[in-house]
Design a protein around this nucleic acid. Sequence first.
DNA 1: TGGGTCTCAATGGATATTCATGGTCTGGAA
DNA 2: TTCCAGACCATGAATATCCATTGAGACCCA
Lengths: 162, 162
Amino acid sequence: MSYESFIGYALNAVDTKNRLSIPAEFRDAIVARSGTKDLYIGPARGLDCLIGYDKSYHQVLQNRLDAQAVDEETAEGAFRAMALFGSTSAFKIDDAGRIVMTAGLKDLGDIAGHVWFVAGGNWFQMWNPYRFLEQAGVEPRMLRILRREMEARGLPMTEPAR
Amino acid sequence: MSYESFIGYALNAVDTKNRLSIPAEFRDAIVARSGTKDLYIGPARGLDCLIGYDKSYHQVLQNRLDAQAVDEETAEGAFRAMALFGSTSAFKIDDAGRIVMTAGLKDLGDIAGHVWFVAGGNWFQMWNPYRFLEQAGVEPRMLRILRREMEARGLPMTEPAR
DNA sequence: TGGGTCTCAATGGATATTCATGGTCTGGAA
DNA sequence: TTCCAGACCATGAATATCCATTGAGACCCA
């Protein structure tokens, strides 16, 4: 695959109306990859964060599921399909480059006031920055970058009560 | 692969608006190698500097990642992809041959007023000149060349406080 | 070989555009 | 009517784009 890749990172705020700006670079990549402004967001497997991707990669995931010849009438197959489709939401990015976070997604990703976007090529992750700092196995450099961004915005380094 | 190689060195200034001229020779190599003006910059592994490369070499790195055949939907696979894509920045070189250094990159590479570019074939390194002078294992000849460049620009040989 | 001219790279400054974010308005559901 | 979601408008900061300057080197010609 030689699509445009998701590259880089960003730390954006969720406002009082649950609106969230998608980083401009990611928006451009979404359009370049899929030709649409559609953004799919679901839970990340095995990590305490969300994962976002464009329509073309959603297709890839679906094909992968199909290729596994999962029988959707078995319990296992049904659960797999549900994991992909059930908890995933599709958004259309508005003219200001934002989406409205649903309560369900905020809950899934443990999202509060800010979202830490980190690119992974064909997708990007969306973290509660404090969950990211606590996460084992993260490249120390990425932690350093995030701390710097939090500092630049005056965010406390330890999570405020909510 | 027999692309055009990155060859040579240069010492360029970062201005008050964080703009940085990419050496003309490197710019030409980027276009010759990839057909684009895209420049990727990320942290160098194990060295206190940044590494820059063109799109074709980025593809090589990506293929190397794919070859490891790590399922990117596992936590480990995701972290690997993030180490490559997350901490890297993509720039489009402007008509004057410059990019704008982000705060994050300056921090990662400990970059201040000047950048010392050193070619390495398929990529080039970007150093804070004082970090380069301190670096163990560097060819003495390269140190001499850098000192000469610094002198020509009136830079002090010991790092000024910042 | 020495001057003179020309070109281009690196850099500086001014202006225009975009981004992230906040607020306001309005129509329709409750 | 009251409340909420969505469309629309507003703004400051960050970024990109455009034009100007200077100095070094390439080139040419007598």
